[in-house]
Each structure stands twice: as structure tokens, then as C-alpha cells.
């Protein structure tokens, strides 16, 4: 199995890494780059906790090969806050109690962030549709939905 050199940008930083083809993007993020915010919880696309933005679109990183991201731009939860300032979605999650055990939080933040940047005025249904691919066992989703709607409001204000 031949290793491949890939170049990509993650959270604004250029990286060059050699990977084996059978490694996933999730593996690349957690094991190679040691960014532990992105979580592993099923590795078959069911739970969505490994979701990151790949070229601006959410993907479940357990179902993307690392070699496929050559030339791509990746955003993980670690890239949301800038210059010590929390992103609107992060502020809203704190204020709405949208995090409990916190294990699913990074994935919901990433998808919420993506949604409100794409559509700063989403309906409740659109929020639900966006997060239907993600699992949370603690919150019952309602606080998460409320937080995303609230974050959209922040976005509209600024």
C-alpha cells in the first residue's frame, strides 16, 4: 500500500502529510493532526459526530478517504473561534444549554455554523433537516435547535 502525499488547508493552516490510502479523513484529523474536537462514534455514517466542513460543505469524515482531500479546505470545531472570540453558534449553544455531555457538540456546531452562514434565516424545519444526520443522546435536540435559530439571529444582527 503506497503512501501518498497530500496537501490541504485545515482551519486556515496549510498542511502537507503523507497518508496511506486506507485512512479516513477522520483518522487524519484525530490521529495524524491530533485535532481531538472531531469525534468518532460509529465510523459508518450513522451518528455524524465526525462531521466537518470539506470545501465549505458538511461531510461525515469517517466516510471520506484522507487521500481524497488533497487540495481541499477543511474546517473543524477548532477553527470556529477566531482571535479568542467565540463564533455566534458557539455563544448560542452556551446560552441555550445546547451542550450536556458535549461529545456531539462539535458536530452540531459545525453543521449549525454551516447552516446559518448559508441561510441566516432558517426555519425550524430547515434546522431539523440540517441536523437530522447527527445524533445526540443527552439534550433531546430541542435546545440545539433553539440555539441554532438564536445564532442565526445573531448573524442577522451583525
Amino acid at each position: 500500500m503506497s503512501r501518498r502525499k497530500i496537501r490541504f488547508k485545515i482551519n486556515g493552516v496549510e498542511k502537507t502529510v503523507e497518508v496511506e490510502p486506507n485512512k479516513t479523513l477522520l483518522w487524519l484529523i484525530r490521529e495524524e493532526l491530533k485535532l481531538k474536537g472531531t469525534k468518532k462514534a460509529c465510523e459508518r455514517g450513522d451518528c455524524g459526530l465526525c462531521t466537518v466542513l470539506l470545501n465549505g460543505e458538511p461531510v461525515k469524515s469517517c466516510l471520506v478517504l484522507a487521500v481524497e482531500v488533497d487540495g481541499s479546505d477543511i474546517l473543524t470545531v477548532e477553527g470556529l473561534a477566531k482571535n479568542g472570540e467565540l463564533a455566534p453558534i458557539q455563544r448560542a449553544f452556551i446560552e441555550h444549554g445546547a451542550t450536556q455531555c458535549g461529545f456531539c457538540t462539535p458536530a452540531f456546531l459545525i453543521v449549525g455554523h454551516w447552516l446559518i452562514n448559508r441561510n441566516p434565516n432558517p426555519s425550524r424545519e430547515e434546522v431539523v433537516e440540517a441536523i437530522n444526520g447527527l445524533l445526540c443522546r443527552c439534550t433531546g435536540y430541542k435546545p440545539i435547535i433553539d440555539a441554532i435559530l438564536e445564532a442565526a439571529k445573531y448573524m442577522r444582527r451583525t
Partner: peptide
């Protein structure tokens, strides 16, 4: 089919 995130791929 699946969910919105899976449909991206």
C-alpha cells in the same frame, strides 16, 4: 435518502 450530510457525498 440518508440525511442532508450524506447526500452531499
Amino acid at each position: 435518502i440518508g440525511d442532508m450530510i450524506l447526500r452531499n457525498r
